[in-house]
Design a protein around this nucleic acid. Structure first.
Lengths: 112, 112
DNA sequence: CAGTATCCAACTAGATACTG
DNA sequence: CAGTATCTAGTTGGATACTG
């Protein structure tokens, strides 16, 4: 595979998984399976409603997160990972594992 | 492992691999082993000198890219992946593979 | 050749207020 | 409860000019 084309595709993946709050949103949904809007908001310290909405809409757009609306008052909306979205978990794990490696490496460098 | 701590670490990894031009820089260096500044610049259409410098400095800071300066006129500077930096290749590959999967999935969705 | 320095436009994200 | 709307401060990145 040509490297330039590959970089192009990597960028696309990054745009989806990145976004300041996406990893934490995804990890929470992987853990809890189903979460309501305010439940997510409480679980993510520092996020604003606007940001949470935006990031969830983007993940929904990519068919990674499913949004279930219950037509009732007060409104109830539940978020979950789609069947397809589950494919992203291994990517998050690889990134996490490398991060741990990286932290250790930096610590080692500082001790020299 | 607690999910919140994990998200934190994933973010750190993302900050390093992301940056608009980092994937392409890294992939080029993985392919060519050693590249000079202008060689990289020519290989990356649209990048400015400022951006290339910034991104390279950040990768150098993280001990992922090595910068070899030859004290001569005109100056010659060569960039390469550090021994440690090689650990990032598999992360890029996983992200790339998922991107390909994702493109296929989106195409399938549009045909429905 | 391999950068630095400066300026500015565009986008991002936070705070805040409002609503079905 | 689960958002939307608006405004604004801060950051990012591009264009351009200059340099050892």
């Amino acid at each position: 595979m040509e490297k330039q084309a590959m970089a192009c595709k990597v960028d696309e993946a990054l745009e989806i998984i990145v976004g300041k709050w996406k990893p934490i949103i995804l990890l929470l949904l992987f853990e809890h399976k189903v979460m309501r809007f305010n439940e997510l908001k409480r679980a993510i310290p520092g996020i604003t409603q606007k940001m949470l909405t935006t990031q969830l809409r983007e993940l929904e757009e990519e068919d990674i997160v499913h949004r279930e609306i219950y037509p009732q008052v007060p409104p109830k909306v539940e978020y979950s990972i789609t069947e397809y979205g589950k494919s992203i978990e291994s990517v998050l794990e690889v990134m996490h594992d490398w991060s741990v490696l990286h932290l250790e490496h930096k610590k080692k460098l500082q001790n020299e």
